[in-house]
């Protein structure tokens, strides 16, 4: 049995693998004591090896993990578990978004991450949802109801936020503003995809993959490309770490 643990800035994800198959997984808020939380989450398992990934990987290695890999490599491995042929992975997590291009053998050949600004990440969607008065899980569905295309021009979170406020003040319906916010995230994503290059099918992971509007817009944008998501998109990184532990 191997455990992979993905210590993100907001949540911790754990995936458990036995004989190369995922047998369990868990997700919890990082809270004020991520180290304690992580230990709590894995204490019921008896793994031969623990591999950590994510923002807190080095902290985990100091205390309990046997090895670390980056989120990039972890997502590459995790995505291949679900879609063995995939050559492109898009991951939008809380603090960052990334596009990873894989070689035929599954190794990482190229990748891009967003710069230090939050735009284009889950956090950006969350900030915008809050300022428009939506709960996060209503945000995507609300945007889908819009049939008006309005655009946000600014790519920077702070400016985008004031643009959103001024749209609200101009009386543009919240669902249309929501639509514009989603569109701006997808525009960023496609720009990154174009830089890295992509194949015929794209695996979309990370919590934002559960947002139906982002998925739909991305699919529309990339026309002849198939956009697929695993059933538990949040734990792709943790799963990749666990599978890595299994391999070596």
């Amino acid at each position: 049995m191997q455990v992979g643990i993905d210590l993100g800035s907001r949540t911790i994800k754990v995936a458990v693998v036995e004989d190369g198959r995922m047998i369990d997984y868990r997700i919890a808020e990082s809270g004020f004591d991520p180290h304690g939380q992580a230990l709590e989450m894995i204490k019921q398992y008896k793994p031969s090896k623990i591999v950590a990934t994510g923002y807190g990987r080095h902290l985990a290695q100091k205390h309990f993990a046997h090895d670390v890999i980056t989120e990039i490599k972890a997502h590459a491995i995790g995505a291949r578990y679900h879609f063995p042929e995939c050559t492109t992975v898009v991951d939008i997590g809380g603090q960052d978004s990334k596009v990873i291009s894989l070689g035929a053998n599954g190794s990482v050949v190229n990748f891009q991450m967003n710069d230090k600004c939050a735009a284009g990440t889950g956090r950006f969607l969350e900030i915008m949802a809050t300022s428009l008065g939506f709960a996060l899980d209503e945000f995507g569905p609300a945007a889908l109801e819009s049939d008006q295309e309005v655009a946000i021009n600014s790519m920077r979170t702070v400016f985008a936020e004031s643009e959103v406020v001024s749209m609200k003040n101009r009386g543009i319906p919240p669902k249309d503003v929501a639509n514009a916010v989603h569109l701006s995230v997808v525009n960023r994503l496609t720009a990154m995809l174009n830089r890295v290059g992509f194949g015929e099918s794209i695996v979309f992971s990370g919590g934002v993959a559960r947002n139906p509007c982002i998925v739909k817009m991305l699919q529309e944008r990339l026309d002849c490309v198939k956009v697929e998501s695993p059933s538990a998109p949040d734990i792709v990184g943790a799963l990749g770490a666990a599978l890595y532990a299994d391999r070596c």
Binding site: T70, K73, V108
Partner: peptide, 26 residues
Amino acid sequence: IESDYSPEDVGQLQTRIEAFLEQIRG
């Protein structure tokens, strides 16, 4: 990498550099 002198992006750069080294190590 495009960066300035502020420490803000160190975490992100670290991840990118480590991923690059994983690529080299194969």
